[in-house]
Design a protein around this nucleic acid. Structure first.
Lengths: 201, 201
DNA sequence: CGCCTTGTTGACACCAGTCAATTCACGTGG
DNA sequence: CCACGTGAATTGACTGGTGTCAACAAGGCG
């Protein structure tokens, strides 16, 4: 969808599908830095900053909308209310990044994975993409590893642990959270950072 | 400076000193998610999002300026150009967060540390706080560990490696980069993400 | 039916964490 | 001016979590 070094002239809103922002190191290792669900701007960054320091990948086939930067600029000059919403969107992205940093730095692999699943569940719930306690998670274990900063093999072990603890079921692309309460507790997950409370902005 | 859960009514600009944003887990582990140098807004987040999901700590004594959110709101409604600068500031913060994620997930501890030092050097250079190849780094190894997501002991080992390789000298609060080129190469550091190029915004 | 991606397993290596003791650097008070 | 106290840095021994490698199983798809 976007390549590192690009200087896009429009920004992309994800409508359906799952997308990821990532960087690749010289040794070939890849780190996914953000997952985007429908409703997210995947590259507002390019509007504010000009040259992309990362790439964006469609994990599944995606439907997207595009907004020329010119339009964004006009909007943000004439409609401060909407400009503010864009800024909030960037700020929430940043808040999610910080939670990932906390998880990578100070949580075990198991807790980290649990935290990510909690985050995804809540974010998908907000946009109506969960049913009961389940959602579609169309990630391979390799992609999940690149997201968590773990090796594929270890992701596999962790997923099995989560299953063994009867916290989740994950078959094909369907992930079921079997015990939200314990999963949340394990992850020490506090959704505050997603800033979902309805309040005037 | 700010506590988690706060709902500040003003934002803080760092004028002198070093500040950090951090989270603490129930088990007592702390993760620093951002370091702020003079010129940075340390809690624009609180302006956009209302309730702080993290705390802010003054690492050294700091001089700060405060801007009431009310003022920020007025500015961003009447001066789209300035509003945009605020948004860019948030976006650059997010870009830095992403680089930390990459470093935590896919770089070795040594590379990660080298990357952070490169980042700090460049950021401090921009605000004129470097002299030659050195800058003040008033962090304890424990704080550096909480920043990198490493234990204190391991930080010590890593710092010694950097010294042994004659990449840096670090005595007291003064850090000297002895070989920028090799340090940058080790870290695979590309300053693009800091988005320093002068260009119209 | 047979490829090819994905998932799974086991053995082993190694990076980084933990614990505990020791040294060092300073600032303070006598 | 020196003894002491304190936080920071350093060291060593050991543990353990995660990575790596390599093989094999399981599905999905042409």
């Amino acid at each position: 969808m976007v390549r590192e070094g690009d200087r896009p002239s429009e920004s992309t809103v994800l409508i359906t599908g799952l997308a990821a922002r990532y960087n690749v190191l010289k040794n070939g290792k890849r780190q996914i830095t953000a997952l985007h669900v429908p409703g997210d701007f995947v590259d507002l960054h390019g509007f504010l900053v000009k040259t992309m320091d990362h790439a964006v990948l469609a994990i599944t086939p995606c439907q997207v909308g595009t907004v020329p930067h010119e339009t964004l600029r006009r909007i943000s000059e004439n409609q401060p209310h909407l400009a503010r919403l864009l800024a909030v969107s960037v700020a929430v992205d940043a808040a999610i990044h910080r939670q990932w940093i906390v998880a990578m730095g100070r949580r075990s692999a198991l807790e980290h994975a649990a935290h990510l699943l909690c985050e995804l569940f809540v974010r998908l719930q907000v946009v109506g993409l969960t049913t009961d306690n389940s959602f579609r998670l169309p990630l391979t274990q390799e992609e999940l590893g690149d997201t968590l900063g773990l090796s594929t093999v270890h992701v596999n072990r962790i997923v099995q642990d989560l299953r063994k603890e009867e916290l989740i079921t994950w078959r094909g692309e369907t992930l079921i959270i079997e015990d939200w309460s314990r999963l949340q507790q394990l992850a020490e997950f506090d959704p505050t950072f997603l800033s979902l409370e309805a309040e005037p902005r």
